[in-house]
Every structure is written in structure tokens, then in C-alpha cells.
């Protein structure tokens, strides 16, 4: 297909019915832009947390040093980074069309994600059990919503991985399945990136 225009004519920019566009790249870029907008949701929650992270926001209730544990957060960091690494290594197996390798990476990623969520659930349920729930204070509202928003993303990622564990053996590495696996890789890495920010800002700086 020629992109040359006749002298004096306007250059041809696109072909409306041309079906040869890179469908996989279009889907990954579109999903990437969605994730960047998702990051701005986290920005809003971080801003709320930053504003309410003071004794007045705590309204006599606990504040960061009483509700966060940097060591426990470090184990969670290892778990989420390990989960991202195992999923990513699974996509290395994708290059050779190795279904077992990709599925093994996904299964390990799910296992480590469940470890991460176990820590998170333990923290949040423990807070609520002693009456420090989301209605206790502005600070706890912001803290719990921040942690739960990230945890909800992790849950959706696990559901997505379970779907891929069904689609890989049934549909094979079709263009749709490959695009979904690439998008899932970005989504999963994004969760680790957000967690690093949460860990540093809430668990470390908050514990100072």
C-alpha cells in the first residue's frame, strides 16, 4: 500500500476500511490509557488520605502508627512483587507458545496474590473487630478506602487470571487471548506500582 500522495494533493492519513491496523497494539494502548485514568482515582484517594492524616482527622481514634505495621507491609510488598514477577515470567513462556508455562506463571501469581490479600484482610478485619471501622473517623475512612480500593483491584486481577486459565486451554493463543494476557500483565504490574506508593506513604512515612 502506497502512502505517497500526488504532487499538490493532500497527504493520505488513513484508510477508513483498512483492516490491517495492529489490533493488539491498539488494545494494549487503549487499556494503558484506562490504567492511567485509574491512577488518577488513586490520586484522589491518596489526596483524601493526606488531608485526613492528622489527629483532628483521627477524631480521638487511632492514626497511622497504630494501624500500620511496616514489617507486615514489607511481607505484602514481597508477595505482590513476587506475584508480578511470576506472572511476567509466565509471559516469557508465551513467546514460545508454551501453554503450561504461561498457566504455571498465572497459578503462582494467584497464590502470591492470595497471600497478599490475606495480610490485607487480616489487617482490615482486625481493625473492624475492635470498633475501628470506616465510620470511626475521617482518617480511618480514608485509610480503609485506600487499602480496600487497591485490594479490590487485586481481586479483579485474580478473577481475570482465573478466566485466562480457562481461555488458554480452550481458545489457545488467539489474537484476543494474547491481547488479554498482555493487558493483564500491565494491569498486574500496575497493582505492584500502586502498592509501592501505598507502602511508602502510608506504612513507612505514616509510621514515622
Amino acid at each position: 500500500m502506497s502512502t505517497q500522495a500526488a504532487p499538490g494533493a493532500a497527504p493520505r492519513l488513513f484508510h477508513p476500511h483498512f483492516a490491517g491496523h495492529d489490533q493488539i497494539s491498539a488494545r494494549t494502548l487503549g487499556f494503558w490509557l484506562y490504567m492511567l485514568s485509574d491512577a488518577l482515582i488513586f490520586a484522589a484517594v491518596f489526596a483524601a488520605y493526606a488531608v485526613l492524616n492528622n489527629r483532628m482527622g483521627a477524631a480521638g481514634g487511632p492514626i497511622a502508627p497504630q494501624v500500620t505495621n511496616p514489617l507486615e507491609g514489607l511481607w505484602q510488598t514481597y508477595a505482590v512483587l513476587g506475584s508480578v514477577a511470576t506472572y511476567s515470567l509466565g509471559t516469557v513462556a508465551l513467546k514460545s507458545g508454551n501453554k503450561a508455562g504461561v498457566m504455571l506463571g498465572i497459578i503462582l501469581a494467584i497464590a502470591l496474590a492470595l497471600v497478599f490479600l490475606g495480610f490485607e484482610a487480616h489487617d482490615l478485619l482486625g481493625l473492624m473487630a475492635r470498633g475501628d471501622g470506616v465510620t470511626r473517623s475521617g482518617y480511618l475512612s480514608a485509610f480503609i478506602i485506600l487499602i480496600a480500593t487497591h485490594g479490590l483491584h487485586m481481586v479483579f486481577g485474580i478473577i481475570w487470571m482465573l478466566v485466562m486459565l480457562v481461555q488458554i486451554p480452550t481458545l489457545g493463543f488467539s489474537a484476543n487471548v494474547v491481547a488479554r494476557l498482555l493487558n493483564l500483565r500491565m494491569f498486574w504490574q500496575f497493582q505492584a506500582t500502586i502498592w509501592v506508593v501505598i507502602y511508602v506513604y502510608v506504612y513507612m512515612i505514616g509510621a514515622f
Partner: peptide
Amino acid sequence: PLDHPEVRMASAWRYISGFIASMVLMQAA
């Protein structure tokens, strides 16, 4: 689809390096 550049860019050493770098930096913090 497995020939797509975004599939071919997957690299074990890059992912392992990223994992180790992030772990070490968070441990330092």
C-alpha cells in the same frame, strides 16, 4: 499473534532484575 513485538519483548532477565531491584530498594526503605 505470538510474533507481536509486545509478546517478543518479554524477557526473563529484565523481570528478575526488576523484581530484585524493587525488593532491595523497599528493603532499604
